[in-house]
Every structure is written in C-alpha cells, then in structure tokens.
Deep mutational scan, measured.
Amino acid sequence: MDETGKELVLALYDYQEKSPREVTMKKGDILTLLNSTNKDWWKVEVKITVNGKTYERQGFVPAAYVKKL
C-alpha cells in the first residue's frame, strides 16, 4: 500500500496499450490499483513525468501482467 492506503501492483512485464482505455507500463513499474474485480483486466493509475511535470492516467492492464504488493 502507498502512503494514502491505496493498494499497489508491480508490473511483471512490459505492456503497450492497444486502446485508449488501456495504459502502457514497463516491467518493474509500480502502479496504483483502483479495481481488481475483473479477473482478466485490472484498472490502475500510472504516473507519467513529461518535461518535469507529473501526470496521472487511469486505464486497464492485463491482470496476469501485474502482481499485488
């Protein structure tokens, strides 16, 4: 869990989004888990830094590609 009590997951593999509802992740990324009720796709939040500014983006990743921490 992070400092706000949200559950975290670890990306076990790289994943490139294939639709606007998904998010890209790299092996080793730590993501915030938002919803894991679907056994195949989990909703996560990723933080992306571009030119020194951090953005948060929500989307789905394959559940088999992440592990709860």
Rank of each mutant, 00 (worst) to 15 (best):
M1D: 15
M1Y: 09
M1L: 13
M1W: 09
M1K: 10
M1P: 15
D2T: 10
D2M: 08
D2I: 09
D2R: 05
D2G: 13
E3I: 08
E3Y: 04
E3Q: 11
E3G: 12
T4I: 13
T4M: 14
G5D: 11
G5W: 11
G5N: 12
G5H: 14
G5S: 13
K6V: 14
K6D: 09
E7Y: 11
L8V: 08
L8Y: 15
L8Q: 10
V9E: 00
V9G: 10
V9Q: 00
V9R: 01
V9Y: 05
L10T: 06
L10H: 04
L10P: 00
L10I: 15
L10S: 04
L10G: 02
L10Q: 11
A11Y: 02
A11D: 00
A11T: 04
L12M: 08
L12T: 04
L12E: 03
L12P: 00
Y13Q: 13
Y13G: 05
D14A: 06
D14L: 02
D14I: 02
D14V: 02
Y15N: 01
Y15V: 01
Y15H: 03
Y15T: 01
Y15K: 01
Q16F: 14
Q16R: 10
Q16C: 10
Q16L: 11
Q16E: 14
E17C: 11
E17G: 15
E17N: 06
E17T: 07
E17Q: 13
E17I: 05
K18D: 05
K18H: 09
K18F: 05
K18G: 07
K18Q: 15
P20H: 10
P20N: 10
P20F: 07
P20I: 10
R21Y: 14
R21N: 14
R21E: 13
E22S: 05
E22K: 04
V23I: 15
T24G: 08
T24D: 03
T24P: 07
T24H: 04
T24V: 02
M25G: 00
M25D: 00
K26G: 04
K26V: 09
K26Q: 09
K27I: 05
K27D: 02
K27Y: 04
K27S: 07
G28H: 05
G28T: 01
D29S: 06
D29F: 03
D29W: 09
D29P: 00
I30Q: 04
L31A: 07
L31E: 00
L31M: 14
L31F: 07
T32D: 05
T32Q: 11
T32V: 15
T32K: 14
T32C: 08
L33S: 01
L33D: 00
L33F: 03
L33P: 00
L33H: 01
L34Q: 03
L34K: 05
N35C: 09
N35Q: 10
S36I: 05
S36A: 12
S36T: 10
T37K: 13
T37R: 08
T37M: 10
T37S: 13
N38D: 15
N38Y: 07
N38E: 11
N38K: 06
N38A: 07
N38I: 05
N38W: 06
K39I: 11
K39L: 10
K39H: 12
K39P: 14
K39Y: 08
D40P: 02
D40L: 13
D40F: 15
D40K: 14
D40C: 11
D40H: 15
W41H: 03
W41M: 05
W41N: 02
W42H: 02
W42V: 06
W42S: 02
W42G: 00
K43N: 06
K43C: 10
K43F: 15
K43R: 10
K43P: 01
V44G: 00
V44S: 00
V44F: 00
E45C: 11
E45N: 06
E45Y: 07
E45R: 09
V46A: 13
V46P: 02
V46L: 12
V46N: 11
K47W: 12
K47F: 11
K47Q: 12
K47I: 13
I48H: 08
I48S: 07
I48L: 12
I48T: 09
I48D: 07
T49C: 11
T49S: 12
T49D: 10
T49Y: 12
V50Q: 10
V50Y: 12
N51I: 06
N51D: 15
N51E: 12
G52L: 07
G52N: 09
G52P: 02
G52I: 03
K53A: 13
K53I: 15
K53E: 13
K53H: 15
K53C: 12
T54H: 11
T54I: 12
T54E: 11
T54L: 13
Y55H: 08
Y55G: 09
Y55K: 09
Y55V: 14
E56C: 13
E56N: 14
E56M: 15
E56I: 15
E56L: 15
R57D: 03
R57N: 05
R57G: 03
R57M: 06
Q58D: 07
Q58S: 12
Q58G: 06
Q58T: 10
Q58Y: 07
G59C: 02
F60Y: 15
F60Q: 03
F60K: 02
F60R: 03
F60E: 04
F60L: 09
F60C: 10
V61G: 00
P62N: 02
P62I: 02
P62Q: 02
P62V: 01
P62M: 03
P62E: 02
A63Q: 06
A64M: 12
A64F: 08
A64W: 08
A64I: 11
A64R: 14
A64L: 11
A64G: 11
Y65F: 11
V66I: 08
V66F: 05
V66S: 01
V66Y: 01
V66W: 01
K67N: 05
K67Q: 14
K67S: 09
K68Y: 07
K68H: 08
K68E: 05
K68Q: 07
K68R: 13
L69Q: 05
L69P: 03
L69G: 02
L69E: 03
